[in-house]
Simulated scan of single mutants.
Amino acid sequence: MRIGAAARARTGALDQLRAKPPIDEAAAAGRLASRLAKEAAKREKRQHALLAAKALKHAKAQEAAAAAAVKQKPVLTEAERKAARDARYLARKNRASS
Protein backbone atom coordinates (compact mmCIF):
# COMPACT_ATOMS: atom_id res chain seq x y z
CA MET A 1 0.00 0.00 0.00
CA ARG A 2 2.69 2.51 0.96
CA ILE A 3 4.85 1.40 -1.94
CA GLY A 4 1.99 1.98 -4.39
CA ALA A 5 1.26 5.43 -2.92
CA ALA A 6 4.90 6.42 -3.18
CA ALA A 7 5.06 5.23 -6.78
CA ARG A 8 1.90 7.18 -7.68
CA ALA A 9 3.28 10.32 -5.99
CA ARG A 10 6.56 9.93 -7.86
CA THR A 11 4.88 9.48 -11.23
CA GLY A 12 2.59 12.42 -10.52
CA ALA A 13 5.56 14.63 -9.65
CA LEU A 14 7.42 13.52 -12.77
CA ASP A 15 4.35 14.19 -14.93
CA GLN A 16 4.07 17.71 -13.48
CA LEU A 17 7.76 18.29 -14.17
CA ARG A 18 7.40 17.13 -17.78
CA ALA A 19 4.24 19.24 -18.29
CA LYS A 20 6.05 22.39 -17.17
CA PRO A 21 6.67 24.74 -20.10
CA PRO A 22 10.29 25.16 -21.19
CA ILE A 23 12.28 28.13 -19.88
CA ASP A 24 11.97 31.21 -22.06
CA GLU A 25 15.55 32.21 -22.84
CA ALA A 26 14.70 35.90 -23.33
CA ALA A 27 12.89 36.09 -19.99
CA ALA A 28 15.73 34.26 -18.25
CA ALA A 29 18.28 36.63 -19.79
CA GLY A 30 16.16 39.59 -18.71
CA ARG A 31 15.94 38.30 -15.14
CA LEU A 32 19.70 37.69 -15.09
CA ALA A 33 20.43 41.20 -16.39
CA SER A 34 18.05 42.68 -13.83
CA ARG A 35 19.66 40.74 -11.00
CA LEU A 36 23.16 41.76 -12.10
CA ALA A 37 22.11 45.42 -12.32
CA LYS A 38 20.61 45.27 -8.82
CA GLU A 39 23.77 43.67 -7.45
CA ALA A 40 25.94 46.33 -9.13
CA ALA A 41 23.76 49.12 -7.72
CA LYS A 42 23.93 47.54 -4.26
CA ARG A 43 27.71 47.24 -4.51
CA GLU A 44 28.03 50.87 -5.64
CA LYS A 45 25.76 52.05 -2.81
CA ARG A 46 27.92 50.15 -0.32
CA GLN A 47 31.08 51.72 -1.76
CA HIS A 48 29.55 55.20 -1.39
CA ALA A 49 28.53 54.42 2.18
CA LEU A 50 32.04 53.20 3.02
CA LEU A 51 33.61 56.29 1.46
CA ALA A 52 31.20 58.55 3.35
CA ALA A 53 31.98 56.77 6.62
CA LYS A 54 35.71 57.07 5.95
CA ALA A 55 35.34 60.79 5.17
CA LEU A 56 33.31 61.31 8.34
CA LYS A 57 35.92 59.49 10.41
CA HIS A 58 38.67 61.60 8.84
CA ALA A 59 36.75 64.81 9.52
CA LYS A 60 36.18 63.81 13.15
CA ALA A 61 39.88 63.02 13.53
CA GLN A 62 40.80 66.43 12.13
CA GLU A 63 38.29 68.10 14.42
CA ALA A 64 39.70 66.24 17.42
CA ALA A 65 43.25 67.21 16.43
CA ALA A 66 42.19 70.86 16.10
CA ALA A 67 40.50 70.73 19.51
CA ALA A 68 43.61 69.19 21.03
CA ALA A 69 45.76 71.89 19.46
CA VAL A 70 43.52 74.58 20.96
CA LYS A 71 43.68 72.96 24.41
CA GLN A 72 47.45 72.64 24.33
CA LYS A 73 49.32 75.24 26.34
CA PRO A 74 51.57 77.51 24.32
CA VAL A 75 55.27 76.75 24.57
CA LEU A 76 56.98 79.54 26.51
CA THR A 77 60.43 80.82 25.73
CA GLU A 78 63.13 80.91 28.38
CA ALA A 79 62.61 84.64 28.94
CA GLU A 80 58.83 84.21 29.32
CA ARG A 81 59.32 81.39 31.84
CA LYS A 82 61.77 83.53 33.82
CA ALA A 83 59.36 86.49 33.84
CA ALA A 84 56.52 84.27 35.07
CA ARG A 85 58.74 82.78 37.77
CA ASP A 86 59.82 86.27 38.89
CA ALA A 87 56.18 87.42 39.00
CA ARG A 88 55.24 84.43 41.16
CA TYR A 89 58.20 85.13 43.45
CA LEU A 90 57.21 88.80 43.84
CA ALA A 91 53.58 87.88 44.53
CA ARG A 92 54.67 85.39 47.17
CA LYS A 93 57.04 87.93 48.71
CA ASN A 94 54.31 90.60 48.79
CA ARG A 95 51.87 88.20 50.46
CA ALA A 96 54.41 87.22 53.07
CA SER A 97 55.29 90.82 53.92
CA SER A 98 51.67 91.97 54.20
Rank of each mutant, 00 (worst) to 15 (best):
I3W: 00
G4T: 02
G4Y: 11
A5W: 03
A6T: 12
A6V: 12
A7T: 10
D15I: 11
Q16M: 08
L17D: 04
L17F: 12
L17M: 13
A19H: 05
K20E: 15
P21E: 10
P22Y: 02
I23E: 12
D24H: 11
E25M: 08
E25P: 03
A26V: 11
A29W: 09
A29L: 11
G30C: 02
R35V: 07
R35D: 11
L36G: 01
L36H: 08
A37E: 14
K38Q: 13
E39D: 04
A41Q: 06
A41K: 11
K42F: 07
R43M: 09
K45R: 14
R46Y: 14
R46L: 14
Q47N: 03
H48I: 02
L51I: 05
A53I: 04
A53H: 05
K54I: 03
K54C: 04
A55V: 08
A55T: 10
L56G: 09
K60T: 02
Q62M: 12
A64C: 05
A64R: 13
A64S: 14
A66V: 10
A68I: 02
A68P: 00
A68T: 02
A69R: 15
V70R: 06
Q72W: 08
T77M: 07
T77V: 03
A79H: 11
E80Q: 13
K82A: 15
A83I: 07
A84F: 01
A84I: 09
R85H: 07
D86Q: 12
D86I: 10
A87L: 09
R88Y: 06
R88I: 03
A91C: 08
R92G: 09
N94S: 10
N94P: 00
A96D: 12
